[in-house]
Design a protein around this nucleic acid. Structure first.
Lengths: 115, 115
DNA sequence: CACTCCACCTGGTCA
DNA sequence: TTGACCAGGTGGAGT
């Protein structure tokens, strides 16, 4: 299990969440694929969100959460300067067949100090 | 020669200039092509700007000035509420070969009244 | 190289 | 139908 936190930037709020490469490396199998579905539970509500996590086909990886992310931003009223913390869970195996679930738990959102 | 004026919107300032469909119809040959290069002279400076003018491939035409437009916006410090006026010139023929120049003159920029 | 931001492109939706 | 805006995908450039 790996933990990350991210200070939200302009682009994160308006477009998509750019993720540290460490995060990308901690997802088990991205091989050949450029996009995976990604579940994350919001710790505060217990709600599970589904995002698309994709990387560029060319150039350096640059992993981002794209589809679904903006909806999350709006729902949580995230703003530039907020920090989001999330923990990537290990792969979960269900039954005999291995079902890959890329998952994370979003921790509490930390608002910036009021100036 | 046709004249147009446009009250600049948020999208015009931040993304691209959406043009009235009349404008699109007044450009001689857009046939089959979805993007043409487009020159425009800034009346106040005499400088000629080059933009890309493109339309959608599907759905309704929706002509816009894309490439080059944002640079122009910044250079002229255009803001939401400003009005831009432009005159589309007739096609210009140079020498024996017909050289199509889609051109326009951008007129004075009218700032909105201060509230 | 890793990360961020920007410019651009495309299509969908809504009034 | 048009125009405004949104969402998402892409590559380039700056730090």
């Amino acid at each position: 299990m790996a933990e990350f936190s991210k200070l939200l930037t302009n682009t994160d709020i308006q477009k998509r969440l750019s993720l540290p490469t460490k995060f990308y490396n901690s997802l088990p199998s991205f091989e050949g694929i450029h996009a995976v579905s990604f579940q994350a539970m919001d710790e505060s509500t217990g709600l599970v969100w589904t995002f698309q996590c994709s990387v560029r086909r060319e150039g350096h990886p640059k992993p981002v959460l794209s589809k679904g992310w903006l909806e999350f931003v709006r729902s949580k009223k995230l703003q530039v300067g907020d920090t989001i913390r999330f923990s990537v869970l290990d792969q979960i195996v269900l039954g005999e067949k291995e079902v890959k679930i890329y998952g994370a738990i979003f921790g509490p959102i930390i608002a910036p100090p009021v100036p």
